[in-house]
Amino acid sequence: MNPSAGSGAGSAVGSVLGSVARRVRSVLPPIVVGVGLLVAWQLFVQVRHIKPYLLPPPSAIWHQIASNRSGILHAARVTGTNALVGLLAGLVLGVGAGAVASRFRWLGELTIPVAVAVNAIPIIALVPIFNNMFSTTSAIPRRLMVTIIVFFPIFMNTLRGLTQVDATKEELMRSYAASPGTVLRKVRVPHALPFLFTGLKIASSLSVIAAVVAEYFGGLQDGLGSHIVSAASNSAYGRAWAFVAASCALGLAFYFVTILAERVFVPWQPARRSR
């Protein structure tokens, strides 16, 4: 199975080729599936003569993307900024709250059920109320929405990571007479990092969804969400789909940046998974 043949110079080249081959093998299937789906979609729409207001073909959407390029880029930058600001604020608040809750066991036990319950309700429904609280030219309601939505996965995963250190590691540190600060620095924080990134991966996708959907409910209308709404209400379905595609791309970009950051900050975790 393993390409571990050869020795000396040959094996160095071999291992580089091997790692390239492995990367290609892990990236290729999703690309093939994606392209396959697009082709199937195109064929389905053409063969069955689907009406464009039901489902435009990918070629038409691509045409719309090309002709609205600057508008899409501008809207994506606005939505991307909203998502990023909200995400960073949620990250700071979530990690901070997780750290505080982890210091006091009762606080964690108290907040986790509340957090789970709050997480289950459609917080996005609050946007119209936020919009009334701030002026119509304010970007705050959308960003606030993002912050609240990303807070929960980050908070819960941070808290879990900081507190659920296995008993053996805890007892080992106790046997070393390590101070609480040392245990935090050398055990709890590194232990929590993979958990934090699990939360961040959920949060990064959620942040874009929240930033796009928040505009459906009014407020400042200059992001991807408002363009989707206005194009759809003008029966410009191809254009609406173009902005939807841009939203998808933005969400993926956020997700991939998070994965890259995970590889940098948690180098031991992906390696374990790749085995």
């Binding site: 590691k169 007892e171 080992l172 046997s175 007479a177």
Partner: peptide, 27 residues
């Protein structure tokens, strides 16, 4: 214990996965 007068090994190895073998021994 406060003087770290003993070394302890548990049934679970209790190694820190973010540390290399050397770094684990150095802890």
């Amino acid at each position: 214990r406060l003087d770290q007068a003993y070394g302890m090994a548990f049934q679970q190895s209790g190694l820190f996965e973010w540390r290399t073998v050397t770094k684990n021994i150095e802890l």
